[in-house]
Design a protein around this nucleic acid. Sequence first.
DNA 1: CGTCTGGTTGATACGACTCAAATTTGGTGG
DNA 2: CCACCAAATTTGAGTCGTATCAACCAGACG
Lengths: 241, 241
Amino acid sequence: MATKLEAFARLSTDDRVALERVTQNTRYIDARRDLISEGDKPRYVHLVLDGWAARYKSLPDGKRQIVSLFVPGDFCDVNVYILKYMDHSIGAITRLKVALISPDEMSVLTEGRPRITQALWWHELVTIAIQREWTLNLGQRSAYERLGHLLVELYLRLRTVGRARDGRCDFPLTQNDLADATGLTAVHVNRILQELRRDNLIELERKQLHVLDLERLMDVSMFNLNYLHLDHEGRHLDANE
Amino acid sequence: MATKLEAFARLSTDDRVALERVTQNTRYIDARRDLISEGDKPRYVHLVLDGWAARYKSLPDGKRQIVSLFVPGDFCDVNVYILKYMDHSIGAITRLKVALISPDEMSVLTEGRPRITQALWWHELVTIAIQREWTLNLGQRSAYERLGHLLVELYLRLRTVGRARDGRCDFPLTQNDLADATGLTAVHVNRILQELRRDNLIELERKQLHVLDLERLMDVSMFNLNYLHLDHEGRHLDANE
DNA sequence: CGTCTGGTTGATACGACTCAAATTTGGTGG
DNA sequence: CCACCAAATTTGAGTCGTATCAACCAGACG
């Protein structure tokens, strides 16, 4: 498991080798530390190899919103280095293993490799689509639907990179994190999670999520999976076969 | 005024001619009609030449969220044609004049024109940054702050493309639109707008917005303009001078 | 062990929603 | 130019979802 790109594109052996090479420069970040902070000058593309991270924005009154989450295989902003400064921070939820990729390395990686280029594009577009879905989530869904939706999304995303099966996956977010991601308070998140459990939709303890009835959970949270764009030709295929 | 790109990049005469050529294929859309609908196959990049549009998502229970707004000069999804289907719709707020640009024309436009390529990238990244800011807006700001923030953002965006000055601009959104964009009800939007007027922050009638005290409005809505990334070298410069 | 972080519970408050109706505005056709 | 109609705005009363504040509990850790 190097990246999520494989879930999308039919990569050739050469593509894989190139990817491999470019992810050699790795770094570890402790849980709850920032990978990069608002105001910093972006210098690398990050690829999450292991662990979870959150992109968040803070307000002068101390409020904080997690605007997106990164799970293993996710790239952080393939082209941010075009911008002068970060308008948000990225913090590690768990201890994190990331690859640092310089702009130059990105060019080398994509130059003459249309499959990788396409796959990176797809990744970017899906990331944006997720951001839009979160906007919908915060604007229109109730607390119950909102949390249900988030759990489904994360479960599915983890599943596409082989980090979830049979309804189970690691789930390192605290109720506080969930509150920051859903625009609710931690107290309310706690109560809604209890409802979800009471309704036999999920189990969640010790950082382990068990989705008991995915279909029903998707239903009650009005989950429409079109926004994840998993319908691509390349899924589970291989350019060499 | 062809595009917003000029506000960012120092374009050469050749760049401008190329842009001009690629925006010849125009089309008009009536107000309140869809430019493209969820489920459609995206075939063109759209460039809004005149009028306003909204990107929105709907839920099975009938709720609707405007997830972003387009004003003159905005591109709709420079690379969506990579995805199979639209996961949202784009509807015209006013009568709309748009340019249709095919993927091929986009390649021709960017091929060998690094300034345009860079500028398009910048536009995409700012669009995404705005989407993140909306997530923050919906998740953490009060109704009063939320509306104030949206008004400031639109005013500033219009100003960078020369469609606003002295605090004044066209503002074709109905209170219903504002409700769909802010995740509030139209009734509540109405009441909050009255508060904003009472506080001498804005005037708003007959589709005309007048921001009476931009600085204070930015203050009360905790507006941090870093996310619009207006700090680029190219602003108001010209590659030929 | 004490301390800390994360989770749980209870009581109360308030911001935003709902529903319903009145009023104003803007467009259309006679 | 006026009469009419639909759309948009405004107002009021009552309700509800979520926030707030304050404890308390459990497990992890040094």
